[in-house]
Design a protein around this nucleic acid. Structure first.
Length: 493
RNA sequence: GACCCCAUGGUCUAGAGGCCUAGGACAUCACCCUUUCAAGGUGGUAACCCGGGUUCGAAUCCCGGUGGGGUCACCA
């Protein structure tokens, strides 16, 4: 059997981590088995549709490297890949079922049903459809159908069980009596989800449906539809959900949940994918760092967890930091370019970007952070860390010391790490202070901060001219009555 | 409420009856390294939800309880 799986989002929002993880597992499963990964857009509910959502979702998946083999944009032999374009098929199938009596029209109004539900609930009973229209005579039904709005309901057997053979959970048994005659077609002639998926999955020859856990309780309905249709359904695999730190469903109020937001935070897509695949699945080798391609071979639904995973931003950022350090400089440059522009940094002048990245990337967890770390290389500091000023500039001797340092630097012929070390040592000795007593004020003068790359490495990249210029500017400021401009808010140390 | 799913440190997980004195990773704490901050290294705190079985032996199997989650639309 050829493996064909799909990810079928409704274009009602952005691609969020839960959806991305589901798509990821589908993708990995397809690739592992040499099968096909299909993208289908479930856009039958016009009311919930969000403009641009479809494009955004596709872009999000592409950014993560999750490429589909068939879909609305790339086509395929089993199209159309937009559910709204399959409505004719849904209708034909519904008519067929109606002719066979497996489905019947229901004329109850939404208001009536609502009242009925409320009544049942108030008595502590499950809110299920009474089946009032189920027993209408065919003549009566046919008569009303011509004049009254109606939905179509599936005649669900009130006895027996429906069992879901789940690849992850095993057999899950549902009592048919627990289900009511659910709606499969709306009055406007469009299909309800539980009907449309079954038809579309069959139409696209989907072999395995891998989706979030929240769909498990829908599955018996879909199996019942498939049975009514006389078709064999796909195999099912329900993957655990991703929950927020407070153990509830992930939502906007938990902060970033859409993959677009992660991009904006400066999370590398390769890091996000790597983190996501570890939520609910583990490599038998024990490896945690894997590219998408490397995960294909070991991926197996047998190793998918049964428990919901709680999403942890800290670990994501840690992992991102690892990627920031290990990707190639050219990849890093490509990824950081937009952030540099957005931060208003012009790196056409000054150090080479590669050198700047090499110098600063070890200390960042996100691209946003990294940009701030390298800003000083292209822009002289405007403010100076208040605590640092208090600690390193308080001594009256500092100005003179920095002035002599600038002179020494000017006079030096070489400009490399070891030469600078020697120069600092010499000066420290002459001044009768420890080397650190010069290093710290110098870093503060050059970067405005007390933390950052090693001073000598930093100076090599900054260059001689810029370094001495900044030192002299500080000397001047220290001797002026206003002193040094401080950073407005503390805590930047 | 009904139905369904699930249950190893704060978090992600390894573990498929003896290899478990429960392993790894994030986080956290301490120390080392060090010109700062990171990174790195070393070490520490920290878990098998509870109760019954089955078995010579249970984190692993069974039952019950508890807890958490999901679903109960003319949404997907």
């Amino acid at each position: 059997m050829t493996v064909r799986v799909r990810y079928a989002p409704s274009p009602s929002g952005t691609l969020h981590v839960g959806g991305a993880r589901t798509a990821l597992f589908n993708y990995l499963f397809a690739r592992h088995h040499g099968g096909r990964f299909i993208l289908r857009i479930e856009d039958t509910d016009k009311a919930r549709q969000v403009e641009g959502s479809e494009v955004q979702m596709m872009q999000g998946l592409k950014n993560l490297g999750i490429q589909w083999d068939e879909g609305p944009d790339v086509g395929g032999d089993f199209g159309p890949y937009r559910q709204s374009e399959r409505i004719a098929g849904h209708r034909a199938a519904a008519r067929d079922l109606l002719a066979q009596g497996k489905v019947y029209p229901c004329f109850c109004t939404p208001e009536e049903l609502d009242a009925e539900r409320k009544l049942l609930q108030s008595r502590g009973l499950p809110p299920r459809y009474s089946g009032r229209c189920r027993t209408l005579s065919t003549a009566q039904a046919a008569d009303w159908m011509a004049s009254k709005p109606h939905v179509l309901r599936l005649r669900v057997p009130n006895q027996g069980t429906t069992v879901v053979h789940d690849l992850i959970r095993g057999d899950v048994v549902f009592e048919n009596a627990q289900l009511d005659d659910f709606v499969i077609m709306k009055p406007d002639g469009t299909a309800i989800y539980n009907f449309a998926v079954v038809l579309d999955d069959a139409g696209m020859a989907i072999s395995h449906v891998i989706r979030g856990d929240e769909h498990l309780s829908n599955t018996p309905k879909q199996i019942l539809v498939a049975e009514a249709l006389g078709i064999g359904g796909p195999q099912f695999a329900h993957v655990p959900m991703i929950l927020a730190p407070d153990h509830t469903k992930l939502s906007k109020r938990h902060g970033a949940i859409s993959v677009e937001e992660y991009r904006q935070q400066g999370i590398l897509p390769e890091a996000l994918v790597n983190y996501l695949m570890l939520l609910g699945w583990s490599n038998p080798s024990g490896a945690e760092f894997m590219t998408l391609a490397e995960a294909i071979e070991p991926f197996d639904l047998n190793r998918v967890q049964h428990t919901a995973a709680i999403y942890d931003q800290k670990k994501l950022e840690w992992m991102n930091g690892q990627y920031l350090r290990s990707v190639s400089l050219s990849r890093l440059e490509e990824a950081i370019r937009p952030f540099i522009e957005q931060a208003g940094i012009d790196c056409a002048h000054g150090p080479k970007l590669h050198a700047a990245l090499e110098l600063t990337r070890e200390r960042a967890r996100t691209l946003v952070e990294l940009v701030e770390n390298l800003r000083f290389l292209y822009q002289p500091p405007q403010h100076f860390d208040a605590k640092g000023v208090d600690r390193h500039f308080r001594d009256d001797a500092v100005a003179g010391r920095l002035e002599r340092l600038a002179a020494e630097l000017d006079a030096s012929i070489s400009w490399d790490h070891d030469g600078l070390v020697l120069l600092f040592d010499r000066l420290a000795q002459a001044e009768g202070v420890k080397r650190a007593a010069i290093i710290h004020p110098t870093r503060l003068a050059l970067t405005g901060k007390t933390v950052g790359p090693g001073l000598f490495e930093l100076m090599v990249v900054l260059g001689k001219q810029e370094s001495t210029d900044r030192l002299r500017a500080i000397v001047y400021a220290l001797r002026s009555p206003q002193g040094v401009p401080l950073t407005p808010l503390p805590g930047s140390a």
